[in-house]
Write a protein that binds this DNA or RNA. Structure first.
Lengths: 340, 340
DNA sequence: CTGAAAGCGCTTACAG
DNA sequence: CTGAAAGCGCTTACAG
C-alpha cells in the first residue's frame, strides 16, 4: 500500500509522444493545440491519472491557488456558514481554502502573515473586523484581501456583510410598532464598526418615531452572553426600566434572557428581547428569539467572488457590499407590559 | 501600495556574503553552520524580512506542509471545535490546514482527491466516518490519514474519537439508576460505526441491569432532528410506550423533545430524554439536555498529533485512540412518571 | 501548431 | 564548515 508517486508532465508527454510544452498547452490553452494532438494528450492523461503538481505550477506562476481565511475564533457560531459560502465559491474556481484563527493574539496573526509572505496564499479573507497583524505598516505587504461579517476598521479593505443599519432599523421599527417606547439598547463597546452601525439603526428608528433615546437605557457590553446578563443587573439598579431589550447580537440577547428569567420575569410578557445574527441557538431558546438573520452563506459567496475579482486585477466599484437583512419573527417580542 | 515582491534566499545570501546553500543550512540545520556565519545570516534575514518560499521548498522536498481536512458539512456543530484542536496542533508544528466539504457528494470528494494528488496536501483528516472518494481502489493513493469523530468504516485508517460505547453505557446506567426500565433507543440506521457502538453501550447497560431490550422500543432514524420527531410519532402508534428516550445524538434528542412538547408532554416529568455529543444548542434547550460531552478540541489535538507521527514514519500502536466521555447532567432527566 | 530552453526558489549530496 | 551544481515539475517567451 505504498503511495505510487504520481505521474508528472514528462510521463504524459512521453506517452502522448509530444513535448511537455505541448502537454501544458493542451491543458491550459487548448485552443492553441491541434485537435489530434489534444486528443492524444488527454488520452495520455487519462492513462496516467496525471494531475498538475500545484506546487510546481504555483512556483512558476508566482502565485498560489490558496486563499487564507483568518478568524479570531473558528468556533464562532457565525463563522461556519460563511465558510461554507467561501469554500463553495473558491472550489468552483479552482482555489482551496487555508484557515487560521488568532484568538485575538497578535502573535498568532503574525504567524499567518508568514503563510502570506511565503507565497502560500494568493489572497486573504478576514473574518471580524480587524487586521490581526499588529503594525498597520504590514498593510503594504498584504495580498488582495476582503473583510467579511464586519468591516475592517483599521485598513482600507473592501467588505462584504449584512446591512447592519438597515437590520437594526427593522428591529427598532418592529418594537416601536408593538408599542415599545422605552427600549434599552445593549451594545458592544469594542471597536467594531458593525456594532456602531446597529446602534445607528436603533437611533434612526427612534428618531423617526419621535422617540427619545434615553442615555440611561444605553448600555455597553462586549458582545458576550455574560455581558448581556450583566446589563440586566445594571439596569435594575437604575430608576428607569425599559419595556424591551434590543441587543447588539444574539449572544448578548441570550444573556439578557437568562438574566431576566433568573429574576423571575417572563419573556415576552414582562419584557421583550431581540437579537441580531440568528445564530443556531436562537431558534432553540425558550421563547425562541426574534432576531435579524445574517445571510451567511451568501456573504461568503459574495466575498470570495469579490476576492477572485481582485486577484484578476478587477477593482470593485464599491468599497462595501451590503446584503439585505431579514427579520426573523419568533416569540421573544410582544406588546409592552403595564409596568410594575 | 503595490506588494513588494518578497526577499528570496539569494537576497539574504548576498547581504550575508555567503552562498544560498549556507543560508538554507543556517535556517534548517543551524548546528552545521559556524556561529559567526549563522549570526550574519540571521541578521540578513532580519534586514530583508525573508521567509522561505513554501512552494519552492515543498516542490524540492516532495511534500507540502498542508493537511487536508475533509468533512461532509463544515457547518456541523460538532466540527468547529474539532477544527480548533486540529488547527492549533498543526500550526504548532508548522503545518497549515486546508479544508473541504463534500456534502456527501462523491464528485466533491474526487475534487479534493486532486488536492492530494497534486501534492498540495501531505496528509488527510477525515471527519465523519467515510472515505469520500468513491472506489476503495483509491485507497492506494491516499497519503497518511486519520479519521476523527467517527471511525472510517470503509478503510483501514486510524481513528481518534470519544469512547462511544463507554459514553452510551454511562447514559444507560444513569437512566436505570433513575428508575427507568422501559427506555426507547432512537438510533441511526446509516452505516456509521459510532452509532452502532452507542447502541452497544445501551444494550450492555440494560443487560447488566437484567433489563430486556424491547424490539418495539428500538427505532432507527438518520441522526437528524426530523428523524427524532418522527420516532416519537412512530412510538405513539405502538402499544408500549417508554418512560425515557435515549437518543443516538443531540440532534435526534432535540427532535424528540420537540415532538413530545408538541404533544403536550412535559420533559422530564412525563418523559426523560438524553442526547450524545453536547452540541452548543443542548445547553439552551428548555429543559437543558442531559448528554455526553465530546472532548472535541482534544479529539482534534490528538488526531493531528497522530497524523504528524504518521507523516514522520512512526506507526501508531493502536488503530484507535478512544477519549473518555463525560456525562453532562442537566434537566431533561428525572424518575419515570407513573404512566397513563 | 510545436519544441528546446530558461527559470521560478529552494535543498542537499558531493567535493573540498 | 562552506560552495557549486543538480534538480524538484512546471509555464511561456522565443524561434521555427
Amino acid at each position: 500500500m505504498s503511495i505510487p508517486s504520481s505521474a508528472t508532465i514528462e510521463d504524459v508527454a512521453r506517452i502522448a509522444e509530444v513535448s511537455i510544452a505541448t502537454v501544458s498547452r493542451a491543458i491550459h490553452m487548448p485552443e492553441k493545440v491541434a485537435n489530434s494532438t489534444r486528443l492524444k494528450v488527454h488520452q495520455a492523461i487519462a492513462v496516467t491519472g496525471y494531475t498538475t503538481n500545484a506546487m510546481a505550477r504555483s512556483l512558476r506562476l508566482g502565485r498560489s491557488n490558496m486563499i487564507l481565511v483568518v478568524a479570531p475564533d473558528i468556533g464562532d457560531p457565525n463563522f461556519s456558514n460563511i465558510l461554507v459560502g467561501l469554500e463553495n465559491e473558491a472550489r468552483a474556481h479552482g482555489y482551496g481554502i487555508l484557515i487560521g484563527h488568532t484568538q485575538n493574539d497578535a502573535q498568532r496573526g503574525l504567524e499567518y502573515l508568514k503563510f502570506l509572505n511565503s507565497n502560500q496564499a494568493a489572497g486573504l479573507i478576514l473574518f471580524t473586523g480587524i487586521l490581526p497583524f499588529g503594525h498597520q505598516a504590514m498593510t503594504a505587504r498584504l495580498p488582495p484581501s476582503v473583510g467579511v461579517f464586519e468591516p475592517i476598521y483599521n485598513g482600507g479593505i473592501p467588505y462584504v456583510g449584512v446591512h447592519d443599519m438597515a437590520g437594526a432599523r427593522k428591529i427598532a421599527d418592529m418594537l416601536i410598532a408593538e408599542g415599545h417606547q422605552r427600549t434599552a439598547f445593549i451594545g458592544d463597546s469594542r471597536t467594531r464598526l458593525a456594532y456602531s452601525r446597529r446602534r445607528a439603526g436603533f437611533d434612526e428608528g427612534m428618531k423617526a418615531a419621535g422617540l427619545a433615546v434615553l442615555p440611561s437605557l444605553i448600555l455597553d457590553g462586549d458582545g458576550t452572553l455574560e455581558s448581556g446578563r450583566l446589563a440586566v443587573e445594571q439596569l435594575f439598579m437604575r430608576d428607569t426600566l425599559p419595556t424591551a431589550f434590543m441587543c447588539v447580537n444574539d449572544q448578548t440577547a441570550i444573556g439578557v434572557m437568562i438574566g431576566l428569567t433568573a429574576r423571575g420575569y417572563d419573556i415576552p410578557r414582562d419584557f421583550s428581547v431581540t437579537g441580531f445574527d440568528d445564530i443556531p441557538q436562537a431558534a432553540f431558546m425558550s421563547p425562541a428569539l426574534t432576531t435579524i438573520r445574517q445571510p451567511r452563506t451568501s456573504i461568503g459567496k459574495h466575498a470570495m467572488a469579490l476576492l477572485l475579482d481582485l486577484l484578476e486585477g478587477r477593482q470593485p466599484n464599491e468599497p462595501e457590499i451590503l446584503l439585505s437583512p431579514d427579520l426573523i419573527v419568533r416569540n421573544s417580542v410582544s406588546g409592552p407590559a403595564r409596568h410594575l
